[in-house]
Amino acid sequence: MSDLSGSSRTDIKSQSSMFKTSLALRHFRGRVFYGVCLAGSLVGILLLIVLMNDIRQDGFEYFSRHFFTNYPSRKPEIAGFRGAIMGTLWVMTIVAATAFPIGVGAALYLEEYAKKNRLTSLIQTNISNLAGVPSIVFGILGLQLFVRGTIGYGPAICIGESCGFGRSVMSGALTLTLLILPVVIVASQEAIKSVPPSIREASYGVGATRWQTVSSHVLPQAMPGIMTGMILALSRAIGETAPIIMIGALTFVAFSPETPLDPFTAMPIQVLNWVSRPQAEFHDLAATGIVVLLITLLTMNTLAVVLRIKLGRESAR
C-alpha cells in the first residue's frame, strides 16, 4: 500500500517536471508555427511584388503614343499594340452582348422558373463541371463548332462556300462566351438568391404574373450583383489566351477588324507573340503590352468593387 502511494508520488513528480519543460517547448513550437504560417502567406504576395516590379522595369521603354497607334512590326521601335487593342475591344463587345442575356436568362430559369427535379439538378451539376474544364478544351470546341461549323461528324453548317465563322472575331467571341458562361450564371444566381422573398410575395400579392414579378422587381434588385459578376467574368475573358489561339487568332495582324467576320488578334496573343521571340527588345514590348493589359484589368476590377459598394449601399437604404 505504502509502496504504491510512493510510486504514484514519484509519477506525479516526474510528470510535473515533464509538463514544465514541455510547456516552454510548446510555447516555442507555437511561436515557430505562427512564424511559418505568416511567412507562408507572404510568399505569394512577395512574388506578386517582384513580378510587378519586373514588369514596371521593362514595361515603360516603349510606352508612348506610338505604341497605341501603330500596328506590330519587325522593327521594335515602331511596333505597336493597336491591332490587339481593337481586336480585344471587338471580341469583348460581342462576348458581353451574348454572355449577359444567356447567363442571366439561365440564372433566372434556374432560380425562378425551374421545378426542383432531376433535370434542374443535372443542369446545375453540369454548370459546375463546365467551370472546371481546362480553357484549351473550350478552344478545341470553338475550333470545330464555330470556325468550321461542324462537330466532326455529319454535315457542316455552311453559307455558300464558307463553313462556320472561319478564324474570325465571331468565333473567338462565341468561344469565350461559352467559357465564361458558368461564371456569369453562378454569380447571377447568387445575386438573384439574395433578393428577399418578401419582394416577390408582395408583387404576386397585387396580381402580377411571374414574368412581371421577375422583370420589374427581382431583376432590378439583383442587378448590382449581376453586373459585378459580369465585369469579373469579362476581365477573366480578356486575359484568356489559350482558347483564342486554338481558334486561330493570328499573332501577326497589321490591321484592325472591321466586321465580326474579320480575322483578328487580341492583347494576350500579341503579348505571347512578342514573348516568344528571342530578342530582348521584343520582350520589353511584351512587358509594355502587359502593362496595358494589367491596367485594363485593374480598371475593370476597381469598377466592380465600386459598383458593389455603391449599389450595395443604395439597396440597404
Binding site: 442571366v104 436568362g105 422558373y113 474544364v133 450564371i185
Partner: peptide, 19 residues
C-alpha cells in the same frame, strides 16, 4: 429562359462529342 440554361448542356455535349 430554359433554352438559355440549355446552352450549358449543349456546350458539354458538344465538347464530349467533338473529342
Amino acid at each position: 429562359l430554359f433554352l438559355c440554361a440549355g446552352v450549358t448542356v449543349v456546350t458539354t455535349v458538344g465538347i464530349v462529342a467533338i473529342l
